[in-house]
Structures are given as structure tokens and as C-alpha cells.
Nucleic acid binder design. Structure first.
Lengths: 332, 332
DNA sequence: TTTTAGCAATGTCAATACGTGAGTGCTAAA
DNA sequence: TTTAGCACTCACGTATTGACATTGCTAAAA
């Protein structure tokens, strides 16, 4: 149920959000009365109404107001306008994608670095190459004791494992490699481990005596590829410098740990298409943070982009940046 | 100039260091008088002498004593005895190196993880594969627009780059790969970029029209290998939990940034053989930390191990652990 | 009916003061 | 040489205070 606000109330909410975005200090009536052309008392009575409706909060009885999560929600849904990016900033992002020697995931990672420096927020990409398929496996002997097994997907990701060949020999390895290349190349990475287990293992078990070592090496290379959900975080420590956190030791440790924990950040994975905004308690990471994320979907590679910032972050700017970035990726 | 201490003074210094190791609280005379079998007053007069000699400090005029950096230095040089590790702990480390499917650097990284969990300190390895040589390069086409260039060293490290082949063709790439494999395989990684530039580039420049893209891909793969000084940090956030830091927001941010900065940590690289201990100001990272490090030198791979902890860290334990680890690596 | 001026009320923040407890140095006796 | 006793010092936690910002309310003004 959306409660409609008067034009002036909209304006006040927006002003408070903008003001609070500059510094996490409660905004008083005098601070914004000039912009509105009314007296502080008038602003105060409007503020009281906005508070009653749940869009503003006080930190204590005689403090100014801060936006509540509902307030931000209302702002994001009704008040926010896409921010026009200057050509310069957008250009920098686009340039990254014109560099053809970068594979897609590197280009994304580079552009997130740019965004995190620009905004001082934290930028995350979770690639899950769901659609990529096994392109080729190969072994290269490096000395008398070991060979390197190399596994490549059709979107250019490479994994490698060392195989100890003391208990086997090159011919047996060659046989297995041939088998894999014949039977399971083209299989989606997600299924490749199973295929190895149920289609290849029974065969090699019959005529390769010491197949365990080789089997294990490929198995683990495949799992690595599958799990290379490849989380890249840029500007992780940016978050520590925001005033609302920077002098709170406990919060800082908390944030450092949360942003280091791969599982926690990867829990922001499932959502609809488009740009999704999770304000405070709406995300399951931290009530003091907002996470804005979107899926991307290039040819054969999909993933999630996310920008993490304090709740008072510049929503309009981040949304616009993500839109630009997403279109860069998908135009690839 | 070493000032000799009486047996009792040695004992007091050692007790204070041990006590202060448990918690960063100044140690008073009563806390250790029982162990020594003398009255607090006696301990106090000895403490006063130790302070005058520079081995102890007070935080304020009526506080207990804490060890000074000189005190730790004296302890490390004269008092500390290698700590006997329990079989269990050592065994865990050794097991890692018996797993033949791990290349050396992965085994080291895994064992540092064990150590950092065990000690709650931060563990770092700086591998610089000075002696490794180029084993093979290879290209694998993944779609009509691009091939993946793969570069392998004789100690099993693999790098890969995407090459955009819009402006060239597979045959030309094959020629270049053949050339590289003929002419510069076996070259130390450190020299391989030069060789590429001065021996290969002139040749391919003559008869491969669009060689720039291919050349650049290999050049950048080689540089990546060379610069894969591959710093691995385990237990980075452990440091934040030590009482002397855990409630100091500024210090925590400071530590997080320092431990994130690759250059800063890699400045702990050059030293003599054996185990080196840098207490507080002796290291150039942080006056409140001690860094214990040692070089390792396996067949064709060398690097540096380091354990970072608060100044009151368990010196004996860390030294013993590093000795065990070093011998594990060098026995490989 | 809406807006505003005026004012009491309330809470933050920084500075100050106070009491307690831990620990020291010193001195004189054991 | 060691120890008991005592005055002294400082950190730390808990009030106390005053200055300041800001609110809500009320009554007058627009």
C-alpha cells in the first residue's frame, strides 16, 4: 500500500535523502527550509507527518530526521531519476570492452574497478558460467614425474592440475585424454564431472591399471571450473571509510569479514532481470548496507554484478552505472 | 653490546614476556612473584633494573611492566628455546606435502592455511619462481573469433590469454607458436619476454602480416608469469581479533589496508638464509607487529614464507613451525 | 486554513570532577 | 639481601555540568 505524498512532502523527503547522502548526520528543519522557501516550523510539521507515515526517523527525540528504509524504498520507487553520466565516465567503461585481448570476465573485472574508484563503493561480480561447455582437455609432461592436465572451456577459461605419474605412464594418460576428448567435449561444465564419473571411469577402469590418479586430477580440475563461480571484489576496503562505519571497530571487523566471505556475498545471486535494489534489511548481508545488483547475459556467459554501499548511497548514480555496464557486457 | 643478566633477571624477563603473550596487559610484580618464590618487592627492584637496561617498559608511572622491543630482541636471541611441536600438528603439515597431486605452490599455500588457523596469526608466502623455465606454449581455438594462448613453465605454472583473431588467421598463429617452441623454450621465465621481443618479433615481423595481436598476447602472458610473484595471504583477518587492535578502529583499518597492499608485504623479501625475526620497528610494515620469515629453496622454485603477528606473539612456536615447513618444502 | 514566531523540553557532546583499584618506589626493619 | 609497610600516581568508570541543536506545541499572523 503506497501512501501518496504531497508535492512538498516528496520534495522534503528527497532533500533529506540528498542531504543525508552527503554526511550521515540527521537533517534538521533549518537545513532545508531555505531551499523550500518556507519557515523551519512548516518543514517541521511536514517532517512529523513523514515520520508518522514511516518515511523518516529520528535518532533521538530532539534530533533531526534521517530517512528510514521505507523512505529510501519510496525514493527509489517514486522519486529517483536516472542520473545522467558524464561522457568521460561512460567512455572509460566502454573503452575497456573495446580491448579485444581481454576475455569477458577480465573486462568486467576491470570495469568494476573503475566503478568502485569512481563511487567509493564496493563492486562485485559473480560469474557463473552456466552455459559454458568443455572445449578440450590436454596433458603436457613437464618432467619425469609429472604432467600438467589442462582443461579449457569454450568461453576461454582454463584450469590446470598436476598429475603425479609415478604409478602410471604416459600412454595410459594419453588414452584417457583421448577418451575424454572423444566422449565429453561439448558437455556443459555443470555436467562434466558426472559424465567423467559414469561414462569415462567405468571404461578406463577396465584397461588402465592405475587410473585413480589421473581420474582424480581431471575430476578436481572439472570441479574447479564448475566452482569457479569466480567472485571478484573491487574496492572492498572502500566501505571502511564511510563515516557511519569508520570509527566503529566492531562494525569494521564485521564488514571486513562479511566482504571476505565468499558464500555470504554469493547469496546475493538469485533475482529477476533488471536492476534490483536491496536496502538495509532487504538484503541478507548487512542492515546498514544497500546492495544494487543486476544479472548480465552475454553470449555464453552469465553472471551477476553488484554494487555495495552504505544505505545512504547515491542510488541514481549507481543504477545508471550498472545500466551502462550491463549494456556494454551484453553488446559484446 | 649485550648486557648480561642474572639468572633471576632472565627468568623475570621470560615470565613477563610469557604473561604478556597471554594478554596485552602490563604485568605487575605480584603476578609473577609466586612462580619465583620471592616477594613482590624483590621482583619490583629487579624489574626496575630491567627497565633501566631497556628490556622492560611501563605504560605509565604506576603500571606494571611490558616487554620493550629490546626485551623481545634479548628474549629471541638468548632466552627462547625451540618449542616442541606435538606430533599431530607437524603431521598435518607433512601430510599436505605427501599429496602428490598438488603442485608445490598449492601445497605451501595449504600448509600456511593450517599454520594460520593453528596460531591465529597471518601467514604469507611470496613465491618468485626465479629458476623456472618456459616449457611450452600452445594455442587452442575456441570459436571463430578467438584462440586461447597457453604458456606453461617447467614447474607446472600455467598462464593463458585470449587472442582475437579477426585480423589474422590460424596458420599465422601456428607459425608463431612453432617459432616460440623452437627458439625460446627452455629459457628462464625472467628472460623470456626479451627473447620474444628481440628474437621472435623480428622474424615474424617479416612474414606474418598482422602479428601484433598475437605477439601482444604472448608478451602479456609471459609478463604475467614473470610477475606472478604470487603473494598468498592466509588468515589476514586474524590480526584484527587481537586485543591490542580489536577495539581500535583506526588501527584495524590501517592493518586491513597494509595486509591488502601487495607491495608493502612484498617488501619483506630480502634477507639472509635461516629464520629472520623482525620485531616492531625492525620491520618496515608496522611497529606493532612482528614478522618472522624465511626463504625456501626447492628444486626449481624459491620464495619467502612469513608469519605476521602482534609483537607479543609466540616466537618459539612460530620459529619451530617455520622450520618444520621449510624442511617439508625443501625435502620435496 | 495555513504558516510562522516563540518557547519549553529533550537529548548529544565535550569537558570536568571524583572515587576506586592496581601497581609502583622508597625506606626501614628483618 | 629480602621484605613489609606506606605514600603516591595513574587509568578507568561513573557522574555532573554547560553549551548547543533541534523538536513539538501553542497562539498569533497571514
Amino acid at each position: 500500500m503506497i501512501i501518496l505524498l504531497s508535492t512538498r512532502q516528496n520534495e522534503i523527503l528527497k532533500l533529506i535523502i540528498e542531504e543525508y547522502g552527503k554526511a550521515p548526520v540527521p537533517v534538521g528543519s533549518t537545513a532545508i527550509c531555505n531551499t523550500l522557501g518556507v519557515s523551519p516550523a512548516t518543514v517541521r510539521s511536514e517532517m512529523a507527518k513523514l515520520e508518522e507515515m514511516g518515511y523518516l526517523e529520528k535518532t533521538h527525540i530532539s534530533s533531526g530526521r534521517i530517512p528510514s528504509e521505507n523512505g529510501y524504498r519510496y525514493y527509489v520507487d517514486n522519486l529517483m531519476k536516472p542520473k545522467n553520466m558524464t561522457g568521460e565516465e561512460v567512455l572509460n567503461l566502454q573503452r575497456v570492452f573495446q580491448n579485444k585481448s581481454l576475455i569477458l570476465s577480465d573486462a568486467i573485472s576491470k570495469s568494476l574497478e573503475i566503478i568502485s574508484e569512481m563511487t567509493h563503493y564496493t563492486a562485485v561480480v559473480l560469474g557463473n558460467n552456466d552455459d559454458s561447455r568443455l572445449k578440450k582437455v590436454e596433458t603436457i609432461p613437464i618432467n619425469k614425474d609429472s604432467v600438467i592436465a589442462i582443461v579449457i572451456t569454450d568461453n576461454g577459461h582454463v584450469e590446470n592440475k598436476k598429475i603425479d605419474i609415478k604409478d602410471t605412464n604416459l600412454e595410459e594418460i594419453a588414452k584417457i585424454v583421448e577418451l575424454i576428448n572423444k566422449l565429453i567435449v561439448g558437455t556443459p561444465i555443470s555436467e562434466v564431472s558426472e559424465k567423467l564419473e559414469f561414462e569415462i571411469k567405468p571404461i578406463i577402469g577396465q584397461y588402465v591399471t592405475n587410473h585413480e590418479v589421473i581420474y582424480n586430477a581431471f575430476y578436481s580440475a572439472f570441479s574447479d571450473l564448475k566452482n569457479s563461480s569466480e567472485m571478484t571484489v573491487k574496492g572492498k576496503n572502500n566501505m571502511l571509510e564511510f563515516e557511519e562505519f569508520s570509527s566503529n571497530a566492531k562494525k569494521i571487523k564485521d564488514l571486513v569479514n562479511k566482504l571476505d566471505d565468499e558464500n555470504l556475498v554469493s547469496s546475493i545471486k538469485e533475482d529477476s532481470n533488471g536492476i534490483n535494489i536491496y536496502i538495509g534489511a532487504e538484503n541478507n548481508i548487512d542492515d546498514d548496507l544497500t546492495i544494487i545488483k543486476t544479472k548480465y547475459n552475454a553470449d555464453n556467459e552469465e553472471g551477476t554484478l553488484a554494487i555495495i554501499g552504505p544505505k545512504r548511497m547515491e542510488y541514481d548514480k549507481v543504477v545508471s552505472l550498472l545500466e551502462v555496464l550491463k549494456s556494454c557486457i551484453e553488446r559484446e
